[in-house]
């Protein structure tokens, strides 16, 4: 049973590490700011989430696990708020998003009220 939990926690940690890496590769590869944000949100949701689940399994049913769960809750509630603030500030400062399929270079200004 102990062995099984160890293996499971290892799998979750590896998955979390993989998605963190994928998110940061996206952060480098994506063509403009808004698409980079989408890539970074992979790191913030699945990467961090899987890693926290792995650590909770590693810790077992202790106070440490409760603290890790609070960290997960913090990510779940607060990280979208700061991404939203970032996206809104970028759009208001006049940073135009790249729109349309890749390569078409069509830049449609967003509808502003």
């Amino acid at each position: 049973m102990n062995m099984l939990i160890d293996i499971l926690s290892g799998v979750f940690l590896a998955g979390g590490a993989f998605f963190c890496l994928v998110g940061s590769i996206g952060l480098i590869r994506m063509p403009d700011f808004y698409t980079r944000m989408q890539a970074a949100s992979v790191t913030e949701t699945l990467g961090a989430g899987l890693m926290l689940i792995g650590l909770i399994l590693h810790a077992g049913l202790t106070l440490v696990a409760a603290k890790l769960a609070i960290m997960g809750l913090l990510i779940l509630l607060a990280s979208p708020t700061s991404s939203h603030a970032l996206a809104k500030a970028a759009l208001m400062s006049g940073l135009k998003p790249l729109l349309g399929p890749r390569g078409s270079k069509k830049e449609v200004p967003p509808s502003k009220p």
Partner: peptide, 10 residues
């Protein structure tokens, strides 16, 4: 916003 692939801007 939490769902990767979509971000609410306004």
């Amino acid at each position: 916003t939490l769902t990767p692939g979509t971000i609410s801007v306004e």
